[in-house]
Design a protein around this nucleic acid. Structure first.
Ligand SMILES: [Mn+2]
Ligand SMILES: [Mn+2]
Ligand SMILES: [Zn+2]
Ligand SMILES: [Zn+2]
Lengths: 135, 135
DNA sequence: GATATAATTAATAAAAATTATTATTTAGGA
DNA sequence: TCCTAAATAATAATTTTTATTAATTATATC
Protein backbone atom coordinates (compact mmCIF):
# COMPACT_ATOMS: atom_id res chain seq x y z
CA UNK A 1 0.00 0.00 0.00
CA UNK A 2 0.95 3.61 -0.41
CA UNK A 3 2.96 4.14 2.76
CA UNK A 4 2.79 7.91 2.48
CA UNK A 5 -0.96 7.97 2.17
CA UNK A 6 -1.47 5.35 4.88
CA UNK A 7 0.61 7.30 7.35
CA UNK A 8 -1.21 10.45 6.44
CA UNK A 9 -4.55 8.83 7.25
CA UNK A 10 -3.25 7.52 10.58
CA UNK A 11 -1.80 10.87 11.54
CA UNK A 12 -5.14 12.48 10.93
CA UNK A 13 -6.99 9.91 12.99
CA UNK A 14 -8.85 8.29 10.12
CA UNK A 15 -9.24 4.57 9.65
CA UNK A 16 -7.10 3.21 6.87
CA UNK A 17 -9.56 1.68 4.41
CA UNK A 18 -8.66 0.54 0.92
CA UNK A 19 -11.19 3.03 -0.40
CA UNK A 20 -9.48 5.96 1.26
CA UNK A 21 -6.07 4.83 0.16
CA UNK A 22 -7.37 4.47 -3.38
CA UNK A 23 -8.99 7.90 -3.36
CA UNK A 24 -5.92 9.62 -2.03
CA UNK A 25 -3.66 7.76 -4.42
CA UNK A 26 -5.88 8.74 -7.32
CA UNK A 27 -5.68 12.37 -6.33
CA UNK A 28 -1.95 12.15 -5.80
CA UNK A 29 -1.53 10.63 -9.23
CA UNK A 30 -3.58 13.31 -10.96
CA UNK A 31 -2.38 16.21 -8.85
CA UNK A 32 -5.76 17.89 -8.99
CA UNK A 33 -9.01 16.10 -9.79
CA UNK A 34 -12.72 16.64 -9.52
CA UNK A 35 -15.18 14.11 -8.11
CA UNK A 36 -15.73 12.32 -11.40
CA UNK A 37 -12.06 12.08 -12.22
CA UNK A 38 -11.35 10.72 -8.75
CA UNK A 39 -14.15 8.20 -9.07
CA UNK A 40 -13.04 7.02 -12.50
CA UNK A 41 -9.41 6.73 -11.51
CA UNK A 42 -10.28 5.03 -8.23
CA UNK A 43 -12.44 2.45 -9.98
CA UNK A 44 -9.49 1.19 -11.99
CA UNK A 45 -7.96 0.04 -8.70
CA UNK A 46 -11.17 -0.75 -6.86
CA UNK A 47 -13.96 -1.47 -9.36
CA UNK A 48 -16.64 -1.94 -6.70
CA UNK A 49 -16.10 1.47 -5.17
CA UNK A 50 -19.28 3.46 -4.80
CA UNK A 51 -19.58 7.07 -5.88
CA UNK A 52 -21.27 7.86 -2.57
CA UNK A 53 -18.14 6.61 -0.84
CA UNK A 54 -16.07 9.05 -2.84
CA UNK A 55 -18.35 11.92 -1.87
CA UNK A 56 -18.41 10.95 1.78
CA UNK A 57 -14.67 10.57 1.98
CA UNK A 58 -13.88 13.75 0.13
CA UNK A 59 -15.92 15.52 2.79
CA UNK A 60 -14.17 13.88 5.72
CA UNK A 61 -10.75 14.18 4.15
CA UNK A 62 -11.33 17.90 3.76
CA UNK A 63 -12.61 18.22 7.31
CA UNK A 64 -9.46 16.60 8.58
CA UNK A 65 -7.37 18.87 6.31
CA UNK A 66 -5.90 15.99 4.41
CA UNK A 67 -7.39 17.37 1.24
CA UNK A 68 -7.97 20.86 -0.02
CA UNK A 69 -10.76 22.01 -2.27
CA UNK A 70 -9.94 24.27 -5.18
CA UNK A 71 -13.10 26.05 -6.32
CA UNK A 72 -12.84 27.21 -9.92
CA UNK A 73 -14.99 29.48 -12.05
CA UNK A 74 -16.96 27.55 -14.65
CA UNK A 75 -15.79 24.11 -13.51
CA UNK A 76 -16.52 21.64 -10.79
CA UNK A 77 -14.27 21.97 -7.79
CA UNK A 78 -11.03 20.07 -7.86
CA UNK A 79 -9.30 18.46 -4.91
CA UNK A 80 -5.63 18.12 -4.08
CA UNK A 81 -3.55 16.69 -1.28
CA UNK A 82 -2.71 19.33 1.30
CA UNK A 83 0.73 20.66 0.63
CA UNK A 84 2.56 23.86 1.31
CA UNK A 85 0.71 26.99 0.16
CA UNK A 86 0.98 27.66 -3.54
CA UNK A 87 -0.91 29.35 -6.35
CA UNK A 88 -2.71 28.11 -9.42
CA UNK A 89 -2.70 28.70 -13.14
CA UNK A 90 -6.05 27.82 -14.64
CA UNK A 91 -6.56 27.65 -18.38
CA UNK A 92 -9.88 29.05 -19.55
CA UNK A 93 -9.66 27.07 -22.75
CA UNK A 94 -8.70 23.52 -21.79
CA UNK A 95 -9.56 23.77 -18.11
CA UNK A 96 -6.15 22.54 -17.03
CA UNK A 97 -4.99 23.59 -13.59
CA UNK A 98 -1.40 23.65 -12.49
CA UNK A 99 0.54 24.67 -9.43
CA UNK A 100 2.94 27.55 -9.27
CA UNK A 101 5.08 28.37 -6.33
CA UNK A 102 3.82 31.48 -4.60
CA UNK A 103 7.35 32.43 -3.65
CA UNK A 104 8.41 35.48 -5.68
CA UNK A 105 5.01 35.42 -7.44
CA UNK A 106 3.29 37.84 -5.12
CA UNK A 107 3.69 39.60 -1.80
CA UNK A 108 0.78 40.35 0.47
CA UNK A 109 0.31 43.41 2.65
CA UNK A 110 -2.42 42.38 5.01
CA UNK A 111 -1.33 44.59 7.88
CA UNK A 112 -4.39 46.69 8.37
CA UNK A 113 -7.02 44.14 7.49
CA UNK A 114 -9.48 43.52 10.30
CA UNK A 115 -9.76 39.86 9.45
CA UNK A 116 -8.20 36.68 10.83
CA UNK A 117 -6.51 35.21 7.79
CA UNK A 118 -6.46 31.43 7.60
CA UNK A 119 -5.73 30.95 3.97
CA UNK A 120 -4.67 33.03 1.00
CA UNK A 121 -5.56 31.79 -2.43
CA UNK A 122 -4.22 33.26 -5.65
CA UNK A 123 -5.70 31.91 -8.85
CA UNK A 124 -4.57 33.10 -12.23
CA UNK A 125 -6.95 32.48 -15.10
CA UNK A 126 -5.84 32.70 -18.70
CA UNK A 127 -4.57 30.64 -21.62
CA UNK A 128 -1.97 27.99 -20.97
CA UNK A 129 1.12 27.42 -23.04
CA UNK A 130 -0.32 24.29 -24.67
CA UNK A 131 -3.43 26.10 -25.84
CA UNK A 132 -1.42 29.11 -26.95
CA UNK A 133 0.55 26.93 -29.37
CA UNK A 134 -2.34 24.97 -30.77
CA UNK A 135 -4.82 27.70 -31.48
CA UNK B 1 -36.23 51.25 -14.31
CA UNK B 2 -32.63 51.05 -13.25
CA UNK B 3 -31.01 53.28 -15.85
CA UNK B 4 -27.54 52.00 -15.07
CA UNK B 5 -28.52 48.39 -15.51
CA UNK B 6 -30.60 49.08 -18.61
CA UNK B 7 -27.73 50.85 -20.32
CA UNK B 8 -25.40 48.08 -19.34
CA UNK B 9 -27.64 45.52 -21.04
CA UNK B 10 -27.89 47.63 -24.19
CA UNK B 11 -24.17 48.18 -24.34
CA UNK B 12 -23.62 44.46 -24.19
CA UNK B 13 -26.14 43.79 -26.93
CA UNK B 14 -28.69 42.05 -24.76
CA UNK B 15 -32.41 42.71 -24.93
CA UNK B 16 -33.71 44.68 -22.00
CA UNK B 17 -36.23 42.43 -20.34
CA UNK B 18 -37.76 43.06 -16.93
CA UNK B 19 -36.33 39.74 -15.81
CA UNK B 20 -32.80 40.79 -16.64
CA UNK B 21 -33.22 44.15 -15.05
CA UNK B 22 -34.59 42.49 -11.95
CA UNK B 23 -31.76 39.97 -11.79
CA UNK B 24 -29.07 42.59 -12.20
CA UNK B 25 -30.73 44.88 -9.69
CA UNK B 26 -30.94 42.05 -7.21
CA UNK B 27 -27.26 41.34 -7.59
CA UNK B 28 -26.39 45.01 -7.37
CA UNK B 29 -28.41 45.33 -4.19
CA UNK B 30 -26.74 42.34 -2.54
CA UNK B 31 -23.27 42.96 -3.89
CA UNK B 32 -22.58 39.25 -4.20
CA UNK B 33 -25.26 36.59 -4.35
CA UNK B 34 -25.65 32.96 -5.28
CA UNK B 35 -28.39 31.60 -7.53
CA UNK B 36 -30.88 31.09 -4.73
CA UNK B 37 -30.33 34.49 -3.22
CA UNK B 38 -30.74 36.09 -6.62
CA UNK B 39 -33.91 34.14 -7.26
CA UNK B 40 -35.42 34.98 -3.89
CA UNK B 41 -34.56 38.64 -4.15
CA UNK B 42 -35.78 38.84 -7.75
CA UNK B 43 -39.09 37.26 -6.86
CA UNK B 44 -39.93 40.09 -4.51
CA UNK B 45 -39.98 42.38 -7.55
CA UNK B 46 -41.19 39.87 -10.09
CA UNK B 47 -43.07 37.05 -8.35
CA UNK B 48 -43.68 35.06 -11.52
CA UNK B 49 -40.02 34.83 -12.41
CA UNK B 50 -38.88 31.31 -13.14
CA UNK B 51 -35.76 29.81 -11.63
CA UNK B 52 -34.80 28.51 -15.05
CA UNK B 53 -34.82 32.09 -16.27
CA UNK B 54 -32.38 33.02 -13.56
CA UNK B 55 -30.05 30.20 -14.54
CA UNK B 56 -30.27 30.99 -18.24
CA UNK B 57 -29.62 34.66 -17.71
CA UNK B 58 -26.77 34.21 -15.30
CA UNK B 59 -25.11 32.17 -18.03
CA UNK B 60 -25.61 34.75 -20.76
CA UNK B 61 -24.76 37.65 -18.49
CA UNK B 62 -21.48 35.96 -17.67
CA UNK B 63 -20.79 35.18 -21.32
CA UNK B 64 -21.25 38.84 -22.16
CA UNK B 65 -19.03 39.80 -19.21
CA UNK B 66 -21.75 41.74 -17.48
CA UNK B 67 -21.46 39.44 -14.52
CA UNK B 68 -18.57 37.70 -12.90
CA UNK B 69 -18.62 34.37 -11.11
CA UNK B 70 -16.86 34.04 -7.78
CA UNK B 71 -16.22 30.38 -7.05
CA UNK B 72 -15.79 29.74 -3.34
CA UNK B 73 -14.62 26.74 -1.36
CA UNK B 74 -17.46 25.04 0.47
CA UNK B 75 -20.19 27.32 -0.91
CA UNK B 76 -22.16 27.74 -4.06
CA UNK B 77 -20.66 30.23 -6.48
CA UNK B 78 -21.65 33.83 -6.04
CA UNK B 79 -22.14 36.39 -8.78
CA UNK B 80 -21.36 40.07 -8.89
CA UNK B 81 -21.59 42.88 -11.40
CA UNK B 82 -18.38 43.30 -13.34
CA UNK B 83 -16.36 46.07 -11.79
CA UNK B 84 -12.72 46.93 -11.58
CA UNK B 85 -10.49 44.10 -10.37
CA UNK B 86 -10.52 43.61 -6.63
CA UNK B 87 -9.97 40.92 -4.04
CA UNK B 88 -12.23 39.10 -1.61
CA UNK B 89 -12.41 38.38 2.07
CA UNK B 90 -14.41 35.24 2.70
CA UNK B 91 -15.47 34.23 6.20
CA UNK B 92 -15.22 30.52 6.86
CA UNK B 93 -17.67 30.81 9.73
CA UNK B 94 -20.60 32.88 8.44
CA UNK B 95 -19.85 32.58 4.75
CA UNK B 96 -19.90 36.32 4.21
CA UNK B 97 -17.91 37.62 1.28
CA UNK B 98 -16.72 41.17 0.94
CA UNK B 99 -14.64 43.17 -1.47
CA UNK B 100 -11.26 44.63 -0.70
CA UNK B 101 -9.34 46.86 -2.99
CA UNK B 102 -6.39 45.01 -4.44
CA UNK B 103 -4.36 48.21 -4.50
CA UNK B 104 -1.65 48.02 -1.84
CA UNK B 105 -2.93 44.57 -0.86
CA UNK B 106 -0.61 42.58 -3.08
CA UNK B 107 1.83 42.97 -5.94
CA UNK B 108 2.24 40.36 -8.61
CA UNK B 109 5.47 39.36 -10.35
CA UNK B 110 4.27 37.43 -13.35
CA UNK B 111 7.24 38.25 -15.57
CA UNK B 112 8.53 34.82 -16.32
CA UNK B 113 5.24 32.95 -16.40
CA UNK B 114 4.59 31.23 -19.70
CA UNK B 115 0.88 31.89 -19.51
CA UNK B 116 -1.43 34.51 -21.03
CA UNK B 117 -3.01 36.06 -17.96
CA UNK B 118 -6.61 37.18 -18.35
CA UNK B 119 -7.61 37.47 -14.75
CA UNK B 120 -5.97 37.40 -11.36
CA UNK B 121 -8.07 36.41 -8.40
CA UNK B 122 -6.99 36.77 -4.81
CA UNK B 123 -9.29 35.26 -2.21
CA UNK B 124 -8.55 35.47 1.48
CA UNK B 125 -10.33 32.96 3.69
CA UNK B 126 -10.57 33.38 7.42
CA UNK B 127 -12.76 34.73 10.19
CA UNK B 128 -14.47 38.06 9.69
CA UNK B 129 -14.63 40.82 12.24
CA UNK B 130 -18.29 40.13 13.07
CA UNK B 131 -17.63 36.47 13.84
CA UNK B 132 -14.49 37.31 15.77
CA UNK B 133 -16.51 39.43 18.19
CA UNK B 134 -19.40 37.04 18.64
CA UNK B 135 -17.58 33.81 19.26
C1' DG C 1 -48.11 53.74 -33.67
C1' DA C 2 -48.83 49.13 -35.93
C1' DT C 3 -46.45 44.74 -37.62
C1' DA C 4 -43.18 41.06 -38.13
C1' DT C 5 -39.92 38.19 -36.12
C1' DA C 6 -36.39 36.36 -33.51
C1' DA C 7 -35.35 36.20 -28.76
C1' DT C 8 -37.01 35.46 -24.25
C1' DT C 9 -39.89 33.58 -20.81
C1' DA C 10 -42.76 30.41 -17.69
C1' DA C 11 -43.87 26.06 -16.97
C1' DT C 12 -42.48 21.78 -16.92
C1' DA C 13 -39.84 17.70 -17.74
C1' DA C 14 -35.45 15.61 -17.81
C1' DA C 15 -30.89 15.05 -16.43
C1' DA C 16 -27.06 15.55 -13.41
C1' DA C 17 -25.13 16.09 -8.94
C1' DT C 18 -25.25 15.39 -4.13
C1' DT C 19 -26.89 13.51 0.15
C1' DA C 20 -29.52 10.16 3.04
C1' DT C 21 -30.75 5.48 4.36
C1' DT C 22 -29.78 0.89 5.60
C1' DA C 23 -28.10 -3.70 5.71
C1' DT C 24 -23.60 -5.59 5.53
C1' DT C 25 -18.74 -5.56 6.05
C1' DT C 26 -14.47 -4.25 8.16
C1' DA C 27 -10.57 -1.78 10.75
C1' DG C 28 -8.48 -1.51 14.82
C1' DG C 29 -8.45 -1.93 19.70
C1' DA C 30 -9.18 -5.10 23.74
C1' DT D 1 -9.53 -13.90 18.15
C1' DC D 2 -13.49 -11.17 19.31
C1' DC D 3 -16.21 -6.79 19.72
C1' DT D 4 -17.83 -2.70 18.26
C1' DA D 5 -18.02 1.56 16.17
C1' DA D 6 -17.08 3.17 11.79
C1' DA D 7 -17.13 2.59 6.95
C1' DT D 8 -18.96 0.74 2.72
C1' DA D 9 -22.05 -0.64 -1.31
C1' DA D 10 -26.29 -0.33 -2.98
C1' DT D 11 -29.92 2.24 -3.49
C1' DA D 12 -33.35 5.80 -2.78
C1' DA D 13 -34.29 10.49 -2.13
C1' DT D 14 -33.23 15.10 -2.63
C1' DT D 15 -31.23 19.00 -4.70
C1' DT D 16 -29.31 21.39 -8.49
C1' DT D 17 -28.99 22.36 -13.22
C1' DT D 18 -30.30 21.97 -18.01
C1' DA D 19 -33.53 20.99 -21.87
C1' DT D 20 -38.01 21.41 -24.11
C1' DT D 21 -41.88 23.85 -25.78
C1' DA D 22 -45.75 26.82 -26.33
C1' DA D 23 -46.74 31.48 -25.33
C1' DT D 24 -45.13 36.09 -24.79
C1' DT D 25 -42.40 40.11 -25.73
C1' DA D 26 -38.52 43.42 -27.15
C1' DT D 27 -37.07 45.74 -30.86
C1' DA D 28 -36.31 46.75 -35.64
C1' DT D 29 -38.77 48.32 -39.69
C1' DC D 30 -42.23 50.33 -41.63
MN1 LIG E 1 -2.54 22.92 -6.25
MN1 LIG F 1 -16.46 41.27 -5.45
ZN1 LIG G 1 -5.10 25.25 -21.96
ZN1 LIG H 1 -18.07 35.76 9.59
Amino acid sequence: MQMKVVNSLKEHGLKVTPQRVTILSAIEKKGHANIDEIYQEAKTTNPTMSLATVYKNITSLIETKLLKEVAINNQKSKYELSKKPHSHLICKKCGNLEDIDSHNLFTLNSDKLDFDIEEVELNIYGICNQCKKSN
